[in-house]
Amino acid sequence: MNLFRLLGDLSHLASIFILLHKIQTTRSCRGISFKTQALYVTVFVARYLDLFYRYVSLYNSVMKLFFIASSVYILYLMKYKYRPTNDPSIDTFRIEYLLGPCVLLSLIFNYKFSVTEVLWSFSIFLESVAILPQLFMLQRTGEAETITTHYLAALGVYRALYIPNWIYRYITEDGVVDPIAVTAGLVQTGLYIDFFYVYFTKVLQGQKFELPA
């Protein structure tokens, strides 16, 4: 564990709390893509199956359980408690275009051709693109509530911090590198660049998040 990874994980935790706070206080999941949230549940369940057969640390297990539980809870809030505020007609990204390639990539690129390792690879590839339905929705509506942009920013910071974490590990752990996680991670972080540009130039200057028409 190093500082970059810890701060990254805390930023990930913060993003979930921000999202829950947004839904609870506005009593609405307007502006949140159900598809992206459902993809995160898929990601966490596929990756954290190792809870059953591998112990890394208490920190690791607690975080995994939290990510699975909170992501399922968010789906519940969107699908049941605040269902009327969820508008599927603007959440139109075709996720089969993400799932198909991720299945294919995980069958080709994995560290061992076993069910759990392929699922792990799949979860890494899927996480890298899971935000696309959300960004697509943002693009379509052209604006977002400030709190929603804080949620996305925290998620983006989490991904960005994993990059110095890998560099740090490469240096301190004698050349250790996880090519699958790094490649997918770089792609994932790249997806946030446009968003961050608007976030820093508008939202953090006190303006509303609005995309140019």
């Binding site: 990874r5 994980d9 190792d50 591998r54 890394v56 560290y111 996880d178």
Partner: peptide
């Protein structure tokens, strides 16, 4: 090992 899957990250 560089490519050995350790998966100690979240």
């Amino acid at each position: 090992n560089a490519t050995e899957a350790q998966h100690d990250e979240l």
